[in-house]
Design a protein around this nucleic acid. Structure first.
Length: 200
DNA sequence: CATGGGATTGACT
DNA sequence: GTCAATCCCATGC
């Protein structure tokens, strides 16, 4: 498998968001195929970089092909791929994966600590990575991964195998935002059960 | 320096 | 369907 480099990400963010569907995210021995993404761009108010360069958004304004990881609701880490040329702030939020490698490690990291009653209660493995906070927990991705090179790691993204046809996509509006809610900048692998709710 | 608000999730009614 | 948890950081005095 080939890790994607800056030339892949240094393009319009909507294009990258579409083409990341079917690619593979890997970290610390666990991996999954991307089945859901959202695009964010400095020109629209839902993007963290809308109000300019701050310490928090510096990764977004930096070179493409890096990880932008931030904390949401004080609890969850969110994984994004920085896109467009350096100086233009844009990123693709990775929202859901189909788990492929390291399922046991994912289950262990997703198991709630200090709650033995929850062991074995998981309905199925679609709960492992079916949301942006879930997949970072399952893969062990944390804020320390912010700014890391997605070609080199520790978090890496690999190209979709060239011998397979482009997947059929469904698109809709982005989830959990209060501004620019009308933009259809969410992309899903049509019919995949690992997509987060609401399904498209 | 104090305050307020999330690109969410899981537990509960 | 409702709701709390929890922390980083942007903003404003």
């Amino acid at each position: 498998m080939r890790a994607l480099g800056p030339e892949f990400y240094a393009r319009p963010v909507l294009e990258v968001a579409r083409e990341l569907i079917g690619c593979t995210v890997e970290h610390d021995g666990a991996a999954g195929v991307i089945v859901e993404t959202e695009a964010y761009h400095e020109s629209e108010p839902a993007c963290h970089a809308f109000s300019g360069l701050t310490p928090r958004t510096s990764t977004l304004f930096g070179p493409p092909g890096r990880a932008y990881v931030y904390r949401s609701y004080g609890i969850h880490a969110m994984l994004n791929a920085v896109c467009e040329p350096a100086g233009v702030a844009a990123a693709v939020l990775i929202r859901a994966l189909e788990p492929t490698v390291g399922l046991a490690a994912m289950r262990a990291r997703r198991r709630r600590v200090g709650d033995p009653a929850s062991d074995g209660r998981r309905s199925s493995d679609v709960d492992l990575c079916s949301g942006p906070g879930k997949l970072t927990q399952a893969l062990g991705i944390s804020l320390r991964d912010n700014g890391g090179d997605l070609r080199v790691g520790p978090v890496r993204i690999f190209a979709r195998p060239a011998d397979r046809p482009a997947p059929e996509l469904a698109l809709g509006t982005r989830i959990g935002i209060t501004k620019a809610v009308e933009l259809s900048w969410r992309f899903c692998l049509a019919g995949n059960p690992n997509v987060s709710r609401p399904r498209l």
